[in-house]
Amino acid sequence: MHWQIFLQNVFGGIETGSLYALAALGVVLIYRVSDVTNFAQGEMAMFSTFVTYTIWVYSANAGFPYPYIAAFIGALIFSAIFGFLIERIFIRPTSDSSLLGKMIVTLGLILMVNGSAGAIFGTDSHYMQRAITGHIRFGNMIIRPHSFFVIGLAIVIMLVLFYMIKFTMFGVAIRATAQNDKVAKLMGVPTKKVTAFTWIMATMMGAIAGLMIAPATNVYTGMMADIHLKSFIAAVLGGFTSFVGPVIGGLMIGILDNLVGYYISTNWQTVIVYGFLIIILIFKPYGLFGEIPKKKV
């Protein structure tokens, strides 16, 4: 049935696209606060996922009745501490350096975090279960309940971030820090705390993304390589200044990948999809939902 094949590819694309979106939201959050593109977001997510996996295995072996929930909570706690330490040790001391310098620091973090993960957890690839296991069949179509969970999670995180930035005092503090941290500080905004909290949140989001991504890639030191790259593309396509943008961008990439792969060519899939995305960016250089920076005269 042709429509079933079409829908199957769309559903598959939505699930994968949601993973890109989840991975992108943490990058966008840090960018919005500090203008820094955190290239190490993927590797930090990978490290957190290894911790999550370890908790999952140990709690299952210890006979804990809900090992996945234990792993999920453990991931959130660990990533909060991890994000705090990264910000405190590597990011804050470079707060006066140039934007480029800060980004180089995040590039250095890629190597550090990846090397540490290999040394601590080893280099084997491990299976991680889905949040909701099993699948449902509709005729020839397969729908995984896990997909809906991932999509829902991406939308909830997006809405929470959107609400927080737009309608809370903390959001005002974030926007003030993002606009001019020195003036914000003079106005009484605790800019250091804002930045630290942002890194903590972004790292926690990375851990959640990693946990959702792991069933699709396995847990290993290279698990985020492709996803992280595509999450960046999703963020650029959707607009780096928007929280809705990366979600739409991620979904577009996921769905287009599958449709081009099925209906046109798997050989030319990457070329066609990313060629198309470049054309979009020519007409919308700040992304589909990105704000065009306005300069006061």
Partner: peptide, 30 residues
């Protein structure tokens, strides 16, 4: 498929349409 591909929906759909009696998978472990 791409070496780092994580979603095999499209390739698997294309295989099923061919109704093969055997599939050779020339891909590395990941």
């Amino acid at each position: 498929h791409n070496p780092n591909q994580s979603d095999f929906t499209a390739p698997m759909q294309r295989i099923l349409v061919q109704d093969p009696d055997m599939v050779i998978v020339f891909s590395l472990s990941q």
